[in-house]
Design a protein around this nucleic acid. Sequence first.
RNA 1: GCUUCCUUAGCUCAGCCGGUUAGAGCAUCUGACUGUUAAUCAGAGGGUCCCUGGUUCGAGCCCAGGAGGGAGCGCCA
Length: 472
Amino acid sequence: MPADQLRRTRIQDLLQSTDLNREVLVKGWVRTRRGNKYVQFIALNDGSGLATLQVVADAEKFPEESLKEITTGACIAVRGQLVASQGKGQAVEVQATSIEVLGTSDPETYPIQRRGADQKGISLEALREIAHLRPRTNTFGAVLRIRHALAFAIHQYFNDHGFYYVHTPIITGSDAEGAGQMFRVTTLPPEHPPRTEDGSVDFSQDFFGKQTNLTVSGQLEGELAALALGSVYTFGPTFRAENSNTARHLAEFWMIEPEVAFNDLADNMDLAEDFLRSLVKYALEHCAADLQFLNDTYDKELLGRLKFVTDNAFQRLTYTEAVEILKSAKKKFEFPVDWGTDLQSEHERYLVEKHFRKPVILTNYPKEIKAFYMKLDDDGRTVRAMDVLFPGIGEIIGGSQREEDLAKLQARMAEMHVPEDELWWYLDTRRFGTAPHAGFGLGFERLVLFVTGMTNIRDVIPFPRFPKNAEF
RNA sequence: GCUUCCUUAGCUCAGCCGGUUAGAGCAUCUGACUGUUAAUCAGAGGGUCCCUGGUUCGAGCCCAGGAGGGAGCGCCA
């Protein structure tokens, strides 16, 4: 094949190739270059995997002066022979015949230099300041590949189980979804918005002719779709304008929300558990090298924890049973446990990490501490809610069987001061062919947190959005 | 939003009781070395000690205010 018709090969594919002594073309970013006046070695990475390809440049073809621009961070295209390696660190390498520098990288100012001996390298906090370059690191390459694999596995799971992917709106006309503070969407001039006669902002002149916000949940629209298509799910961005400063919250995050007609709470738990387990299993099977790297680098118990989730049933118990366990626990809690109040992080962590030592599904919470749309239990005190609690993460899933009875739903809305007129379309589902149904929300980044073993949610999304930060 | 800790070279960090010209490792640059792979060895350059004000003969260090960051909590996914 003529050289100029040669097509680029992904480095990951080359490293697994047994078809040696052929001409190849690779393109990627230089991790390191080292050597002497006779031979130079370039470690090249193209993002197709964690491992680098060793490119060998002999001095007879490449005098050292010609390699000046091949510095850490530079982008190069290499033609050469794929050969068995003479060195010990790799099975194959590329003996270069030509190297083209596609993009230089000033070594004095490129911030991601190779990590040296006896030092920790750039901290995750420092990398957050250079989020535009951090995908070049081993850690973020691994996290982003795993994030992709999990997203793919989610679609595959639902497709294989007869679910339809519905696209719920990102801009919503409702501000009564009950899931938190919303970001306003408007095209009105911020300095001098049009006013009505009573002095308030005249949103009838806004783009949509009314107040609009970014969605905090696709659930209500998901319920509409489930009551037509049977089994559906959403997977999209979600926005919360809460001033949350924690390692588990983002202002912009991705949420997966399955909703299934005719499912009750037990079906909902079965779905959540099987779903989570299959996603973890997918990652273990398809991201072995990246997970091994994260296990070795950050958390020696990561792989063990993931395998534990795939091999063991989650512990299911009611809120009432959990309160009894916590009350009889010897541990002194900062906040007292009492039936009717929501569990604190320390209580959830005790149940998951100390008492059961496995993922826990808590159900049947007091109605006062849960959303208006959850189905009332027969005792009139609790609702058919479920929270899935994971070690290190806390609440990874929140869901419920929904109240399908129109009168009971309206009564709950009145109790909780949810305006009926804004949700007339939602109530219509209970007027026309209502049906039992259930669903839940899974925070995608919390799933990625658990699977990667990262400890801050800002490190599992490419460009995190959180209070006081919308750079990049 | 609350509590608490932190901010010194590109990165990771020392810096004693407030006392001369600010320290290390790595990175970067220069040189040496015939296959390296956390390469090795020698040398060099590199500082708004987060900002503002104060105390003091003298502040990286003490005090006040501000900014930014981490951890924990609340809200939740």
